[in-house]
Every structure is written in C-alpha cells, then in structure tokens.
Design a binder for these strands. Structure first.
Length: 512
RNA sequence: GGUCCGUUCGUCUAGGGGUUAGGACGUAUCCCUUUCACGGAUGAAACACGGGUUCGAUUCCCGUACGGACUACCA
C-alpha cells in the first residue's frame, strides 16, 4: 500500500485560533511537506450553537501569516470537497444508517430530562461513571428496547431522536499511536456516544471518521485531548469496514501554563502579559480584545521557529531553522510525549535572532512606518543608519523607534540619576569647547573627526575624556545608555549636535 | 471518582544499562566596551520516590506519588 500522504488540520470556528492549534497545524504542515504529501484544512462547524462570526477568516489569516497554507481548504477546494462540515451535512446520515443496519448503532429517543434522571439515578446508586452504555441502554428509550412498531411510528411521526453507537460489552480496543505506542482500552469503559444529533448534524466523532475516510486522510495528527476518544474512532473504522485504510494516529502533547499546572489558556496570557493568539482578536459578542503575536512585534518566521520547538526537536543542537529546514528535519518520532510549558522568553530570544539577521533596509521599513504614525518623516538613509545602530539591542521592530527615539527627536529632559552623578563643571567646559569646534568645522561630521574634536576639546582643558563621556552622552541623548556616541553624532550632524549641546548647557546649568 | 497519557537543571530538551548526564532560554560572575546592549568566557542548576531485573540502573519492569487530558445531542 503506497498512498499519498494526506493530513488535515480540523479546527472548529468557535473563536480565535489558539497557539496550540497553530502548532498542530504547523506539525501537520511539516509532516505533509516532508513526505511530499498534502496538507488540508477542514472546518469542523457541526455545532451551530457555537459558531462565532469571523473565526473562520481568523483561522485563514493566522495560517497565512506564518505561511502554513493548506493545499486544500474551503478557499481552494481539492477534489474531496466541500471542506466545511456544515456543507457536507447531507452526506453523514447514510453512514449512520449503515451502522444501524449493521447493528452497530441504534436510534435513541431519550429526552434531556430522561438522560439527566438516568445520571442522577446512577450517581445515587454509586455507579462510578454514570453513562449511556451497554448496561444502562437497556433501561432507556431506544430502538433496542422499544418494540419495532413503536420505533417505526416515532420515526415516521418526526419524534426527535439521535443515533448512538452500540459499544460492545467486552472488547479490547487497541491503537498504535505514532507518539505513544500501543494504547489499550476496554470497551466497557466506553459509552454509547451520539453519532447523529437530533438536529440532523453529525457529532465530531462520526463526522471526522467519515470525512477523513472520504478525504483519504493517511495520518491524524491532533492534540492529546483526543486520545481518550481515539478508541471510539478505531471502533468506527472497524464497523464501517475501513480498517485497511484507517489513518495512523499521532497525539501531540499539550501546551501548558508557564506557571503552576494546567492547559495554557487565555487567562494566562492576560496574567503574564504575553500573547496567546497569533493575531489580534476581538470577541464579537463580549467585545473583549486580545493581542496577537503579530501585533506584538513577533516576526512570522521567528514565531514559526519557536512554535516548532514546542514539543519537537531535531536531535542535535541547532535551533534556528527556516521553514524549509524544518520540513527537512521534521519527523514525528522526535516529538516528545510530555506536556510543554509555554516560555515567552524563548519566543523573545527567537525574535531577536531573526531580527538581527534581517537586512537594515527591511527593518528600516518598520521604523519608517512607526514614524509616519507619529507624523515624522526621515530619509531612508537615516532610517537605515539608525537600524544599524539599534538592531543589536532590539527585541521587536517597534524597539527601533522606542529605543532609538533620541536620534530623531532632541531630548527635552535629562535622566536625573545620571545628571546628579556625572554632570559637573568639567563636562560643561569640555562641551562648550566641543560646541565651538563643531561650529568651525568645515567638513561634515563623521565618527573619526567627531572623536578627534572631542578628544581635543578635553585635552585643551586638561581634562580626561573618560571622566566626562557620560555627561556628554547625557547632554546629547538625555539618557545614560545607548550605542556608540560617535556614530550617534554622525547621524545627528554637527548642526543638530551643537544645538543639543547648547540646550543641555542651558538646561542643566542650574543643577550644577 | 473512573479511563487514558505523562514525569531529566527554574523552562524547552538531548541521551540511554557502565557518560565528568550534553545543549538552549533564563540566571550569576568575569572579559570586551570610558555607557548600555551585542559578543565571548566561566559558574550555579536536573534523572519524582520505592521496589525489583542486573555485576551495574537515570535508562528495562512493577508499584506509589505528583501532574495532565477526557468523562455533553462541544469540538
């Protein structure tokens, strides 16, 4: 059997795509590309009550942002469409009926109240897990207990019903997970899950098996939260007679909270002030806003690299991987088994690495964009010069503007701590002399002559330059830290520089 | 509660019957730098516990503890 590898990412459009979902999508994508297969996206919208407007577009946009674009999806259908389960609705009933005919499923007419009463009864009787199963179904209203006539009558009269799978009483169900190895579950612990809901929609369990089969899915790579229901899925493949083409399963470890215990959630993001969604998201009902990785300044390739390493590693010590390199290196057997705590510091580190590898011209675009929002415009050359000086110390592109502001706007205040410690008469003397020298300089300023002049200004007054350097920096930039001063002076130019010195001399005089 | 899954430095992890248990993030110290950052160097820091199996177990097996997921006419 030599089937083309086909994998799917199957989110439900119930809100913003969570980072764990993005990782699942990424692993599916990497696996597909590694094996020259296809990566498809299927929207699992069988629950009409949970539909959230905009969620589907969000999924699409998020995947596009990191370049994990499906080969087949609702927006670029392949030959096994539709790719939205709501649009596949007419296809499912026949499969459910097939199971009823084969005796592996049955009609159930119990109302919500009756189900609740059953659970209460069992709980009162101290039954460990109250569920609709091979024992309890005998007491319920279904096509196994009701006379045939009544069943026919109820169906004919439009009585609401569901179709449930008939889980065998005693059977060992086993599956060979690609990550976890053999997992065995006894059917007596499984319940008769609903396959078709009373609204005529299939449940996830039925829909995903039918669709995966029809779409020729070869591998199901999904989160660990699905592991408990995987045996049910195996049973369904068996009852449909699709065992020989049953996909291989790989259940991914979960993404956990950075502190404490539990699955990573939106609350953690709020608590720690880091994003959990790839893109900005505003909840359409509550109006709640959540910031995305993109809008927080994470570069898509850095984000993707970071994500890939949440639960997977190449087995050597390399960490910086392009998408192509990830595809080349990826394999499911190098995915870990245990839950992964989310560490935003690592994400920042990846972002810094990618930021520094970017061309100055590209980074200058970010700076220019930020500046235009402030109503400031500077030349491309100047922007690139600033980027050159700032990119080694930036985590996000927005830091270019935030941290490099002093090269664009003259300071109007001065760091008080630095002033108190470093500002003195010697600094004033050197700075005045330097200002005069700048004014009589014919050439444009460059790092060399800026330095020569400053050294001369210090020497003429018998002052060691090192003693006043911090004061000089303070006078020109307003702060006590930053990139090489002579480079900064060059970007400023002699006119601006002398203007700033004058301003500082005037403003700081009183504090001496 | 039940079922299933898991457990190597604070975090992500490599490793695998005999290793000085390796790397990365973070952290500490030092160097570079008349600043800060970058960079470089160095350090602290881990096999959950108890039984087996074995000449030898962090590695294999079984328990225990702890953690997690699931336990809907949600996915």
């Amino acid at each position: 059997m030599n089937r083309e590898v086909r994998v799917r990412f199957a989110p439900s459009p119930t809100g913003a795509l969570h980072i764990g979902g993005v990782r699942t999508a990424l692993y599916n994508y990497l696996f597909a590309k590694k094996n020259n297969g296809k990566f498809l996206l299927r929207i699992e919208d069988t629950d009409q009550n949970r539909f959230v407007p905009g969620a589907e577009e969000y999924i699409k946009d998020a995947l596009e942002w990191i370049g994990v674009v499906p080969d087949e999806s609702p927006w670029s259908e392949g030959q096994y469409g539709p790719y939205r389960q709501s649009e596949r609705k007419p296809m499912y009933m026949q499969y459910a009926l097939d199971l009823v005919e084969k005796g592996h499923a049955y009609y159930a007419f119990d109302t919500a109240e009756e189900l609740e009463a059953m659970r209460e009864r069992l709980t009162a009787a101290r039954v460990v897990s109250p569920q609709y199963n091979s024992i309890t179904r005998a007491q319920m209203k279904n096509s196994l207990t009701l006379p045939d006539d009544e069943v026919k009558e109820r169906l004919a009269s439009g009585d609401p019903y569901v179709i449930r799978i008939k889980i065998p009483r005693k059977e060992e169900v086993r599956l060979n997970d690609m990550i976890r190895g053999w997992v065995m579950v006894h059917s007596s612990t499984l319940d008769d899950k609903v396959l078709m809901k009373s609204d005529g929609m299939p449940t996830y369990h039925l829909a995903n098996i039918v669709d995966d089969h029809l779409m020729h899915i070869t591998h199901v790579i999904r989160g660990e939260e699905w592991l408990p229901s995987a045996p049910l899925h195996v049973l369904l493949y068996k009852y449909f007679g699709w065992e020989d083409t049953m996909p291989q399963f790989a259940h991914l470890p979960l993404l956990m909270k950075p502190d404490g215990n539990g699955k990573l959630s939106k609350r953690d993001a709020e608590k720690h002030g880091f994003p959990i969604f790839p893109l900005d998201w505003t909840d359409p009902t509550s109006g709640e806003k959540a910031q995305g990785f993109k809008e927080s300044g994470y570069l898509p390739d850095a984000f993707l690299n970071f994500l890939a390493f949440l639960g997977w590693n190449p087995g050597d010590h390399r960490e910086i991987f392009s998408v192509d390199e990830l595809i080349e290196a990826f394999s499911i057997d190098r995915i870990g088994k245990s839950g992964t705590k989310f560490d935003i510091n690592k994400a920042k580190w990846f972002n810094e690495q990618y930021l520094r590898s970017k061309l100055d011209a590209e980074l200058a675009e970010y700076l220019l964009t930020d500046l235009s929002k402030e109503g400031i415009s500077i030349s491309q050359d100047k922007a690139e010069s600033i980027v050159t000086l700032m990119k080694e110390r930036a985590t996000f592109p927005s830091d270019l503007w935030k941290e490099g502001k002093f090269m664009i706007i003259a300071p109007d205040t001065f760091d008080e701590g630095v002033a108190a410690k470093r500002w003195n008469n010697e600094a004033v003397t050197v700075l005045s002399t330097y200002r005069d020298k700048l004014l009589s300089l014919d050439d444009d300023l460059n790092p060399e002559n800026a330095k020569t002049l400053l050294e001369a200004a210090a020497e003429e007054n018998g002052i060691k330059l090192g003693k006043v350097m911090q004061a000089v920096r303070l006078a020109v930039t307003g702060i006590g830290a930053g990139p090489d001063l002579m480079q900064v002076f060059t970007i400023l130019g002699k006119k601006e520089l002398s203007k700033r010195i004058d301003f500082a001399l005037d403003k700081l005089k009183v504090t001496v």
